[in-house]
Simulated assay, not measured.
Amino acid sequence: MSGGTQFALRSSTERGHSDHGWLKTFHSFSFANYSDPKHSEFGSLRVLNEDRVEARTGFGIHSHREFEIFSYIVSGELQHKDSMGNTEVLKRGDLQMTSAGTGIQHSEHAHGDEQVHFLQIWSKPSVANLKPAYFTRHFTDNEKGDRWARVVAPAGEEGVSDARQALGPAPVHSPLSLYATLLSPGRCLSRELSTPALSKAYVHVVQTSGYNPSAASGSTIRVSTPDTQNAVLREGDGLCVTAPDGTTLSVENIGERVAEVLLFELA
């Protein structure tokens, strides 16, 4: 890459958006009936949906293959069932990762009497025809408080367990790491992008203050780099970052409430 860091802001109001009554969803990348050639993927990151599913409703049994699919639970409870025999109720702080590989079927429903708010994330695997596998991890708010919690990391890296349930990040068969933080007002976190030769990052601010298809509100952060790139993000906003290896990315909470921020580091 020639030149320095490049930022591309993805405003929440520009995301694909659908309100089906039982499901209120935003699509950061092309998905289902939403198609945007300018925003179809970023590195190995293919889908980033912010879903709210009403109580006693959900996604019926459907099939997937050749994707790494994970769910990050923000609030409420999500019931997961799949063709591998896994049945589980996921709650705040839980992260579920399904390596669909040669093919799986699963269903996901809001469990209990409350809406479930979660992020559905897909990445493209580096290897085809993998054996399907399922993993869950749990990260407390304290573990994410004003620090980066690494919640997903490439399979085979040191400290990344392939056990169904374990401490540490969930394994993904993609060149992708996912970090999460609950960043207090006035606090700043940095992260050095260390993918060889060329680094990509995607920053997403979770829409924790409530469903809002209009102008973003609530939490506000500033993302910056030493070469003077900077961008202000509000809830629902995303930021594509392309940078030379070793670039330090700083995320500062410039708002008045805690910001829940996801940072994807990509090859």
Results as ranks from 00 to 15, higher is better:
10 R>L: 01
12 S>H: 14
12 S>F: 14
13 T>Q: 13
16 G>K: 14
19 D>G: 05
27 H>S: 02
32 A>K: 13
35 S>Y: 10
38 K>G: 03
39 H>F: 07
53 V>Q: 11
56 R>Y: 05
59 F>W: 09
64 H>V: 08
65 R>G: 01
65 R>L: 10
73 I>C: 10
76 G>Q: 15
77 E>D: 06
78 L>D: 06
78 L>F: 12
81 K>T: 01
83 S>T: 02
87 T>I: 14
88 E>T: 04
92 R>S: 08
94 D>P: 00
109 H>I: 14
109 H>W: 07
110 A>I: 08
119 L>P: 00
124 K>I: 10
128 A>I: 13
132 P>Y: 08
132 P>G: 05
141 D>Y: 09
159 G>M: 07
161 S>P: 00
164 R>W: 00
165 Q>Y: 02
177 S>T: 15
178 L>I: 14
180 A>K: 15
181 T>S: 10
183 L>C: 00
188 C>G: 00
191 R>A: 01
194 S>G: 08
195 T>W: 15
195 T>I: 14
197 A>F: 13
201 A>W: 11
202 Y>Q: 03
202 Y>F: 07
214 S>P: 03
215 A>Q: 14
217 S>I: 15
217 S>G: 10
219 S>M: 07
225 T>A: 06
245 D>R: 12
249 L>G: 02
251 V>R: 01
251 V>W: 02
252 E>R: 11
252 E>C: 12
256 E>I: 15
257 R>C: 13
260 E>V: 05
262 L>C: 11
263 L>T: 01
